[in-house]
C-alpha cells in the first residue's frame, strides 16, 4: 500500500499537467467557437509550463535565491535550492504565450469585422458565398 501511495505522490504532477494538456488540445481542435479555441490554447500552453516547472522541484529545497549565514557567507549548496533553469525557460515561455494570445485576439477581432461571426461553421459558410 505504501509503495502504491509513493508511486502516486511521485507522479501525480505529471498526470495533472498531461490531463490539462489534453483538455487544452481538445479545446483547440474540437471547439467550434474561435474564442474557445484561444482559451484552449491558453490552457494548453500553461499545461506545458506546469510540466516544465515540475522538473525543477526538489524535496527539501527552497526558492532559488541564495541565502546568507549570519556572517554574510553565502550558502552555496545545490540541494538547498530548487533547479533554476526550468524557471528561466518558463519565464520566457510565459511571455511568448501572452504575445501569441495578443496576436490571436487581434486577428479574432478582424474576423468578427469581416465575417460578422466567430463560429467556425458560420465563417466557412460565409466564405463560400
Amino acid at each position: 500500500m505504501d509503495e502504491f501511495f509513493f508511486f502516486i505522490v511521485a507522479k501525480y504532477n505529471y498526470w495533472a499537467s498531461l490531463i490539462l494538456l489534453f483538455i487544452g488540445l481538445y479545446g483547440m481542435i474540437a471547439k467550434n467557437n474561435l474564442m474557445k479555441k484561444i482559451i484552449g490554447m491558453v490552457i494548453f500552453q500553461t499545461a506545458i509550463l506546469i510540466f516544465f516547472v515540475s522538473i525543477g522541484v526538489k524535496w527539501g529545497a527552497s526558492v532559488p535565491i541564495i541565502r546568507f549565514f549570519p556572517d554574510k557567507q553565502p550558502l552555496l549548496d545545490a540541494t538547498a535550492y530548487a533547479n533554476p533553469l526550468p524557471h528561466v525557460l518558463i519565464l520566457t515561455a510565459i511571455v511568448v504565450g501572452v504575445a501569441v494570445l495578443g496576436v490571436a485576439l487581434a486577428i479574432l477581432q478582424n474576423i468578427q469585422r469581416i465575417h460578422g461571426t466567430i463560429e467556425e461553421d458560420e465563417i466557412l459558410e460565409d466564405m463560400r458565398k
Binding site: V42, T46, L49, V53, S54, G56, V57, A61, S62, V63, P64, I65, A82, P86, H87, I90, L91, I94, V95, V98, L101
Partner: peptide
C-alpha cells in the same frame, strides 16, 4: 508552492491580470 517564485510572480502579473 513548487518554489518557483519568479515564475509565479510573472504568471500573476501576466496570466491573471493582463491576459
Amino acid at each position: 508552492h513548487m518554489m518557483a517564485v519568479d515564475v509565479a510572480f510573472t504568471e500573476a502579473a501576466v496570466g491573471a491580470a493582463v491576459s
